[in-house]
Amino acid sequence: MREIKAEYIGEIVYSLCLDVSFRLPPDVQKCIEQALSAEESERGRNILNLLLENAFLAGENSVPICQDTGLFSVMLFVGKDTFISGDIRYEVEDAVRRATADGALRASVASNPLGERKNTGDNTPVGITCSRHSLEGTYLGLMAKGGGSEMGSAIKMLSPSSGIDGVVEFVKEVVSTKGPSACPPLFLGIGVGGSFDLSARLAKTALMAPFDIDDVPLFILDAGGGQRSGVSKKCEEAILNAVNMTGIGPGGFGGRMTCLGVRVFEAPCHIANLPVAVCLNCHALRRKIVQI
């Protein structure tokens, strides 16, 4: 058995919080650069260039990429024969608290959603998920997700007969109504199947894998009980085409490049259901996975 101490996880969470807040991931950078050559709108191209300039300034000066430094979520993908000792929640939240203070990150958590919504002041509590996969190696993922793009996320329980067309139509409807204010060009994580809750988990997890390679690391899929088949990839392509015909464009100011990447994760589901969850992410897809 391999033991991983919770304190060690805390140390990594601390550095990842600062890393994702200040530095745009290389795959995201690459996607924006590719979009530049495909964008037909001049204003759209100007905005894509501004996104790259903003990312450069943020990285150079250790300034947040966006004033909405987001809600942090921690995802542990634990391999076989491995256990974690200690208090994960305590260590993770202590790390987020310290990173928020040291990095001058914005505190964006409202304590009681239906009450006075008092700001907790330190970005805690933190959502932590821990899933197990049957492969070697343990990985830690951290995501900082802004409220503007999360606002556009949606879930719908479709009938099995809806099929790919139904999924594409639903995603297009979500992006058309919520996409313009979600800081496009967007990244879309789509969870299809599973259950009500699993589809949402799959959708968010789908955003964790790099967008500049075709294959998704197996531990990400395996840990979430997901799969990405040839049909999933066909669905990704159909969604990308449909969404890039909405005209929303970079920054929502009109253009072709409304979406930079789509990932569809599927999971087996009940014979009566076809759950679909759409996780919208802004152009600043701030997340990182490291092996621990």
Binding site: I47, L50, L51, E53, N54, A55, L57, A58, N61, V63, P64, I65, C66, Q67, D68, G146, G148, S181, A182, C183, G251, G252, F253, C282, H283, A284
Partner: peptide, 13 residues
């Protein structure tokens, strides 16, 4: 007036 979302480092200037 509309500005672009996600340019916080640039707009700070």
């Amino acid at each position: 007036f509309a500005a672009v979302g996600g340019l916080g480092a640039l707009y700070a200037r």
